[in-house]
C-alpha cells in the first residue's frame, strides 16, 4: 500500500520520523544520544531519495542543526540537552483587537500570533545553564473596504513578522560575571540579573519572515559568553 520511500521513512528512528512527517521535534536526552538522530539525519538524502515531500524542515537544517552541534560541543556529558523545533505553519492568531483611536486609519483590527520555532536548553561543562529561544511574532492587520464603484465589500489583511532571539546563560553558583573589555553592539541588549546565581541575558530582534542566520544567533550567544569567566579563560596550555 505504501510506496517504498514511505516505508523507509516509517522505519526511521522516531525523532527523525516525527521531524519529517510532523514537522516538529521536542525531546531532551543525553548529548551522546543526540548522535543517533544526527547519524540518521546524515543518511536522510539516501533514504528519501531527495523527495521534497519528505524533506527536512528548513529551520532545522539551517539553524537548529548547527546550533545543536555547538551546544553539544560544550554540554555536560551526563546532563540532558533539550531541543524543540517546530516548523508547523498553522497561523493561529489571537482575537483581533481594534487599533488605538489615534491610529490614522480607523476600523483596522490587529491580531498577534506567537510561535516558538526553535528552543534549546542545556547544562554546560562549567556548571552553567544555557537557554536559547527564538520567538516568531506575526502581526496581522485586517480591515474591511468597500469599492467606490462596485460597492463590493472586501476583507483585506496584511502580515508582518519579526523574530526575537533570547539567550539566557545562568552562571554556576558563586561565580560572578566579568564585564567584557568592549561594549556590546547596539543591535543587541544585554542584562545581568543578580540573584542566587547570576544570569546573563542577551536579546535581539530581527524583522522579516526569514529565520535569523546561525551566525547571528551565535553572535548573541557569544555576547552572553563574553560575560562568563570560564568562557574567557584560555584552554589549559600544553
Amino acid at each position: 500500500m505504501f510506496s517504498a520511500t514511505k516505508k523507509k521513512v516509517q522505519a526511521l528512528p522516531p525523532l527523525h520520523r516525527d521531524l519529517v512527517l510532523e514537522r516538529t521535534l521536542g525531546y531532551a536526552q543525553l548529548p551522546h544520544d543526540w548522535e543517533y538522530l544526527l547519524a540518521s539525519i546524515a543518511q536522510h538524502q539516501a533514504v528519501t531519495g531527495g523527495k521534497r515531500k519528505y524533506a527536512l524542515p528548513g529551520p532545522f537544517l539551517a539553524v537548529a542543526l548547527p546550533l545543536l552541534r555547538v551546544i553539544l560541543a560544550d554540554a555536560r556529558p551526563e546532563a540532558p540537552v533539550a531541543l524543540l523545533v517546530d516548523d508547523r505553519l498553522d497561523l493561529v492568531f489571537g482575537p483581533g483587537m481594534p487599533l488605538p483611536d489615534h491610529h490614522h486609519r480607523r476600523g483596522i483590527k490587529i491580531a498577534w500570533m506567537v510561535q516558538i520555532p526553535i528552543q534549546a536548553e542545556a547544562r554546560l561543562r562549567d556548571g552553567s545553564r544555557l537557554r536559547i529561544r527564538i520567538v516568531r511574532r506575526t502581526r496581522r492587520l485586517t480591515w474591511r473596504q468597500r469599492g467606490s464603484v462596485s460597492h463590493k465589500t472586501k476583507f483585506k489583511s496584511k502580515d508582518k513578522a519579526y523574530h526575537l532571539l533570547q539567550v539566557a546563560l545562568r552562571l554556576p553558583r558563586g561565580v560572578e560575571p566579568v564585564r567584557p573589555p568592549t561594549p556590546s553592539p547596539n543591535w543587541l541588549s544585554v542584562a545581568v540579573n543578580p540573584g542566587d546565581r547570576y544570569e546573563i541575558r542577551a536579546d535581539t530582534k530581527t524583522t522579516g519572515d526569514e529565520m535569523p542566520s546561525v551566525n547571528l544567533i551565535l553572535h548573541v550567544l557569544t555576547e552572553a559568553f563574553r560575560w562568563s569567566p570560564t568562557a574567557r579563560a584560555t584552554a589549559v596550555p600544553r
Binding site: 553592539p185 553572535h219 579563560a233 584560555t234 584552554a235
Partner: peptide, 14 residues
C-alpha cells in the same frame, strides 16, 4: 563583529 579580540585570544598560542 563584536570588536572583542578576547574571543580570538581565548585560543592558546599553539
Amino acid at each position: 563583529e563584536l570588536q572583542d579580540p578576547g574571543i580570538w585570544w581565548a585560543f592558546d598560542r599553539y
